[in-house]
Every structure is written in structure tokens, then in C-alpha cells.
């Protein structure tokens, strides 16, 4: 464990809490892509199958449970509790365009063909594209609530911190997880234009609105 990974996990946790706070306080999930949240729930479900079979540490187990809970509570709030505020007509990204290539790739490129390993690989590839429906929705509506931009910032920051974690682990323990690193780079690149807008607009107190 290193500081980049701890900060990354905390940034990830903060992002999920920010989203839950936004939906709970505003009693609305306007501007949130339910499809992205479904994909995140799928990412955690397929990645944490070893939750009970492969004990790493208390921290690891607790964080996996918390992440799974946050993901499913968020999906529940969007598609059930506050479903009247869910603007489904703007959440139109075709999930099959993401799932088909990700499923294909996880069978083509993985570390081994065991079911848990292929599912783990699927979750890594899926996570790198899971935010696309959300970013697509924002580009379609042309704006986003400020707390939603904070959510996206910390969500993007978490994987950027993981990149630093992988550099650190390569230097210190010669650890190299190629699938995670390549997917993490792709994932972080998808956030770049959002990061630019976040720094140039939101941090200057303006509302995030796309030209």
C-alpha cells in the first residue's frame, strides 16, 4: 500500500459520497446518467467476486463492501426512489456499444481463462469506458450542476492517482499489471477535456456549461 493508492481510494470514495449527497439532498438525479451508474455497479460486482474467497486485508474487504453498497444504493435511488426526476431522454448512450467490445476484449486479452479472471478483466476494461454515458449526457445537455462536476473530478482523479501508484509500485516492488495500467491510462484520458473545463470554469466559480 502507498500514499497514491490510499489517496486514490479515498478520492473514489469521496466521489461516490458526493453523488449520493447530491441525489439525496436535492431529492433529484437530474443530470446524472443512470447508465453509467449501472455500469459502475457491474464493474464492482464482476471485480469483487473474490470478496469472500480471497482475503487481502480488512481495509480491502471493507472498501469493497462500501463500494458495492454505494454503487447499488445509487442505482436504486436513480431508477426507483427518485425515478421521476431521472431525465431518461438525455441518457441515451447505447450501452451495447461499450459492452460488446469490452466483453470481446476481455476474452482476447487477459491473464488467464479462469471465470473470475476473465470477469476481473471485464471489470477493468468496463471501468475505463463506464463514464462515457455520463460525459455524453453532459455534452448533450450542455451543462452540469456544480456538485456533479465535483463528483466527476474526484472520480477522474482517483484513477490518475492509481497511475502514480503503479509507477511507484513498478519502481519499488517491480509490480506491473499491464491490463490495469493500459485501461487506467485510457480511462484518465477520457476525463482530460472535463478536467480542463473543471479547472478553467468550475474552480473559477463559474457554472460548467459547454460552448
Amino acid at each position: 500500500m502507498n500514499v497514491f493508492r490510499i489517496l486514490g481510494d479515498l478520492s473514489h470514495l469521496l466521489a461516490m459520497f458526493l453523488l449520493l449527497v447530491k441525489i439525496w439532498r436535492s431529492k433529484s438525479c437530474a443530470g446524472i446518467s443512470g447508465k453509467s451508474q449501472i455500469l459502475f455497479a457491474l464493474v464492482f460486482t464482476t471485480r469483487y467476486l473474490d470478496l469472500f474467497s480471497n482475503f487481502i486485508s480488512i481495509y480491502n474487504t471493507v472498501m469493497k463492501v462500501v463500494f458495492l453498497l454505494c454503487a447499488y444504493v445509487t442505482v436504486y435511488m436513480i431508477y426507483w426512489k427518485f425515478r421521476k426526476t431521472f431525465d431518461i431522454e438525455n441518457d441515451t448512450f447505447r450501452l451495447e456499444f461499450l459492452l460488446v467490445p469490452v466483453i470481446g476484449l476481455s476474452f482476447l486479452v487477459n491473464y488467464s481463462y479462469t471465470p473470475t479472471e476473465v470477469l476481473w478483466t471485464f471489470s477493468i476494461y468496463l471501468e475505463s469506458v463506464a463514464i462515457l454515458p455520463q460525459l455524453f449526457m453532459i455534452s448533450k445537455t450542455g451543462e452540469a450542476e456544480t456538485i456533479t462536476t465535483h463528483y466527476l473530478f474526484f472520480l477522474g482523479l482517483y484513477r490518475a492517482l492509481y497511475l502514480a501508484n503503479w509507477i511507484w509500485r513498478y519502481q519499488t516492488e517491480n509490480f506491473y499489471d499491464q491490463i490495469s495500467v493500459v485501461s487506467g491510462v485510457v480511462q484518465t484520458i477520457f476525463y482530460c477535456d472535463f478536467f480542463y473545463l473543471y479547472v478553467t470554469k468550475v474552480l473559477k466559480g463559474k457554472k460548467l456549461s459547454l460552448p
Binding site: R5, D9, D50, I56, S112, T114, W120, Y162, F175, D177
Partner: peptide
Amino acid sequence: ADLSTSHDEL
């Protein structure tokens, strides 16, 4: 580390 079995990251 042999990655194909235990992934220790979240």
C-alpha cells in the same frame, strides 16, 4: 508478482 490469481487493488 503473479497477477493471474490475486489482485490486491480495489
